[in-house]
Simulated scan of single mutants.
Amino acid sequence: MPPVKRGRRGVSDADDEDDDYRRRRDRNNEAVKKSRFKSKQRTQETFTRVNKLKAENQVLEEKVKTLTKDLQFLKDLFMEYASNSQDPKFEGIDLEKLLEDVTDEKKDASSSK
């Protein structure tokens, strides 16, 4: 909206004000375009990063599942060996207690604090 012309100024004064107003509006419009572009760019970068992290998280969760299965297999294998072994070093040892998950021990320790 152009400035209101008041008083008895000459035509050239009004034209100067219109030109000044137009320059300010044009600069503002460019600044707004630039700001909106940067905002959209940041949003897109965030969206891309979120998708990348989700994919990475999914890979890591699959790896945890695989390693958990491997650990359980090795525990079972050890228990089978230790229970059938005639080796005296396994006598008097609570093998079940020995093979408890470390996470269970950490949970117990943190809950007692």
Score class of each variant (00 low, 15 high):
S85K: 01
E96T: 10
T46A: 09
D20N: 12
L74S: 10
K63Q: 09
P3L: 04
V50N: 04
D15I: 15
F47I: 10
L67W: 06
Y21S: 04
Q58M: 08
K97P: 00
Q86D: 15
R36E: 14
D19Y: 11
R9W: 03
D19I: 09
K54G: 01
Q41C: 11
E100R: 14
A82G: 01
Q86L: 10
A31Y: 02
S85A: 11
S12I: 07
V50K: 06
F73Y: 13
R8C: 07
E56C: 03
R36W: 06
T68L: 11
E45L: 14
K38D: 07
A31K: 13
D108G: 07
A109S: 12
D15C: 04
S12R: 08
D104I: 06
D20M: 08
F47G: 01
N84C: 05
M1P: 01
D104N: 11
R9F: 03
T48G: 02
E61M: 06
F37T: 01
E100C: 06
Y81A: 07
K107C: 02
M79E: 00
P88A: 10
D26G: 05
S39Y: 13
D20L: 13
D15G: 02
F90I: 01
D101I: 01
Q58D: 14
L53F: 00
T43S: 15
K113M: 05
V64T: 05
S110A: 10
K89D: 02
R8L: 10
E96G: 13
N57H: 11
D19V: 10
E30C: 07
F47V: 06
K52P: 00
K54M: 09
V59S: 14
S83T: 12
S35W: 08
Q86T: 08
T66Y: 13
E91D: 10
D15N: 09
L71A: 10
R24C: 04
L53N: 07
T46G: 01
E91M: 04
N84M: 05
A31F: 04
D87W: 00
K33T: 03
Q72V: 02
K63S: 08
L67G: 01
D108K: 09
G7M: 04
E80D: 15
T103L: 12
D87R: 04
N84G: 08
T43M: 13
E62D: 15
K107I: 13
L99M: 15
L60Q: 13
T43C: 12
E17N: 05
L60H: 12
Q86H: 05
T103E: 12
K33A: 15
L67S: 07
R25W: 09
A31T: 08
L74V: 06
R8N: 11
K113T: 03
L60V: 04
E56D: 15
G92P: 00
Y21W: 15
K52N: 08
G92K: 03
D94K: 02
P3E: 02
E80F: 10
V11I: 14
